[in-house]
């Protein structure tokens, strides 16, 4: 699809001195959409970096309340991590199935992704309810405010991701693998994998560095 133009074609010009320019033409809509969504994800990561910065600044400000080591259960976090990691894998399987236009495998992989994501959310909500029930809610100390903001914001993203995932399953049923649906699936996969990347930072910085021996 590339168009080659030659500048300065005049009689008597040395052909070795001609400037040849390659025009690739505009990128396809799939590339433009994917790139735009990538920019959004990076800005989302920048927003999370602000929450990480405030958490790491406030981690010692416990106002004589409990610190990270007393509050967090590593076993719970390990299960959450594995659930999210497996869901990232099945999400990858779903995007392969979408490229192959295999609706059956796509629905199975997306359903497994949704179940794993929901399992992650259940564990996280249970942890939050447990903390609040013990009186260690977000108003207890600056450390806990920062913790609930950071981890809660990630949890909100996962909830929104699950809603988006269910929407994509319904849209594939209703409209099939149209080009616009394929672009949405591409963006959803990017979103879901980016959430897992942010979770890597969360479990390392918040849970493991907080409870390290």
């Amino acid at each position: 699809m590339s168009v080659t133009t030659v500048e300065g074609v005049r009689a008597g010009v040395d052909p070795h001195q001609l400037h040849v320019t390659e025009h690739e033409g505009p990128a396809s809509k799939r590339i433009v959409t994917g790139f735009g969504f990538w920019i959004f994800l990076l800005s989302d990561i920048v927003m999370f970096s602000c929450f990480f910065a405030s958490y790491s600044v406030l981690v010692g400000q416990t106002a004589d309340g409990p610190g990270a080591a007393e509050l967090f259960d590593q076993r719970n976090v390990a299960i959450e991590t594995i659930l999210l990691l497996l869901s990232s894998f099945t999400c990858g399987m779903a995007s392969i199935a979408a490229d192959m236009r295999n609706a059956w495998w796509f629905q199975i992989a997306m359903a497994v992704t949704a179940v794993l994501g929901a399992g992650f959310l259940v564990l996280e909500v249970r942890e939050f309810i447990d903390l609040v029930g013990r009186g260690d809610g977000p108003s207890r100390s600056a450390f806990l405010s920062a913790f609930f903001t950071l981890v809660g914001c990630h949890g909100m993203h996962v909830s929104a991701g699950i809603l988006w995932l269910l929407t994509m399953m319904a849209q594939v049923v209703a409209k099939g693998f149209r080009a616009d649906i394929q672009r949405r699936i591409l963006c959803f996969a990017l979103f879901w994998h980016a959430l897992d990347i942010i979770w890597v930072a969360v479990f390392s910085v918040v849970y493991l560095m907080g409870t390290a021996a």
Binding site: A27, S28, I31, T33, G34, F89, M93, M100, L190
Partner: peptide, 29 residues
């Protein structure tokens, strides 16, 4: 189908072979 112009959208793979794509995710996992 993907309007390939020598650029890739983020999240898009160069490989189109089913086996090597699945293998990539397995290695990553």
């Amino acid at each position: 189908a993907h309007g390939h112009h020598g650029d890739l959208a983020p999240g898009e793979e160069e490989s189109v072979n089913l086996g090597s794509r699945v293998l990539g995710y397995v290695i990553g996992l």
